[in-house]
């Protein structure tokens, strides 16, 4: 997507209000402050990158948003409605899908089964209700359609078991899962950390496809070139707080690193970006 497109699209997308909004998130671990009142706003159809040094509170923030942790203070709203997640399942039910650094795929199962893992479709009628039979054909067809919708060309045979795929293809499967089932937010934790250049390209393309589909994407990454390639806005975490939200158009990678490490300070003025 070109820059002009991004600028044209952004205001329209933002008219709808944030799909995910967190205010004043605080998380304490005993006497250690994990998060000290962090705000996050994510709009539909945008990629928000979250960067920060080790210990800046990235993981804690993501865990609070994905339901893996409950913040001690602060509110989280999805589509303007306040939510409180007790588990990742509850977050998922609210439309927030997370891909963890450790791949959440079942290697021995095929691609279609993995896409539908933990939300299988049952056959209609007696076979489904009494015998609990799965509708394998429907799952295959829908998986195929979904893969096609996302424009994924690297996965050819939907019946292939995931363990026969390369690392990049597996990650594509894991990320594609987040875009299915009418989810609104995809949280991707270091999705390209273990991948080669070409495979990284495949995953980043998929991230952009998810944005095209209107999802809000939160991308956690250490890789600055990747972040600057796909992010619309960049949330910089530092010492448990939000140091700034910057835009790749107005700031350079050097600026981002400087804010991250505390070498430079910018006013945390999220509004000025929009």
């Amino acid at each position: 997507m070109s820059q002009t497109e991004a600028q044209e699209r952004s205001p329209a997308a933002h008219d709808t209000g944030p799909v995910l909004e967190a205010e004043g998130l605080v998380k304490l671990f005993g006497r250690v402050v994990g998060l000290r009142g962090v705000d996050v706003r994510l709009f539909p159809g945008e990629v928000l990158a979250v960067i920060g040094d080790n210990g800046a509170g990235k993981s804690t923030l993501i865990k609070c948003l994905s339901g893996a942790m409950t913040p001690d203070r602060g509110t989280i709203r999805v589509d303007g409605r306040e939510v409180r997640f007790g588990s990742t399942q509850e977050a998922r039910a609210a439309g927030i899908e997370t891909v963890y650094q450790t791949l959440a795929v079942a290697p021995a199962l095929d691609i279609a089964s993995n896409l539908f893992l933990a939300r299988e479709i049952r056959r209609p009628g007696f076979l489904g209700s009494a015998l609990r039979m799965l509708d394998k054909k429907a799952m295959r067809d829908q998986a195929e359609q979904h893969i096609k919708d996302l424009g994924i060309s690297t996965l050819q045979n939907i019946n292939q078991s995931v363990e026969t795929l390369s690392g990049g293809q597996r990650q594509v499967v894991a990320v594609a899962r987040t875009g299915a089932f009418g989810s609104k937010v995809a949280i991707l934790d270091e999705p390209t950390a273990a991948l080669g250049v070409r495979e990284t390209g495949q995953v980043l393309r998929l991230v952009q496809d998810l944005r095209e589909k209107g999802l809000g994407v939160i991308l956690i990454s250490h890789n600055m070139p990747n972040v600057f390639e796909v992010a619309d806005r960049i949330h910089v975490q530092r010492l448990g707080g939000r140091a700034a939200v910057i835009s790749p158009q107005t700031h350079s990678m050097q600026d981002a690193v400087a804010i991250m490490t505390g070498a430079a300070e910018v006013p945390d003025d999220e509004q000025s970006l929009r």
């Binding site: 963890y100 450790t102 959440a104 795929v105 079942a106 290697p107 993995n114 893992l117």
Partner: peptide, 22 residues
């Protein structure tokens, strides 16, 4: 043919991944 079967295989394959998958 059932979701239970799928879940059993997935759990035995990689329990953490299965848990994360829901």
């Amino acid at each position: 043919n059932t979701a239970w079967g799928r879940h059993l295989y997935a759990t035995g394959d990689d329990r953490d991944a299965a848990e994360l998958a829901g």
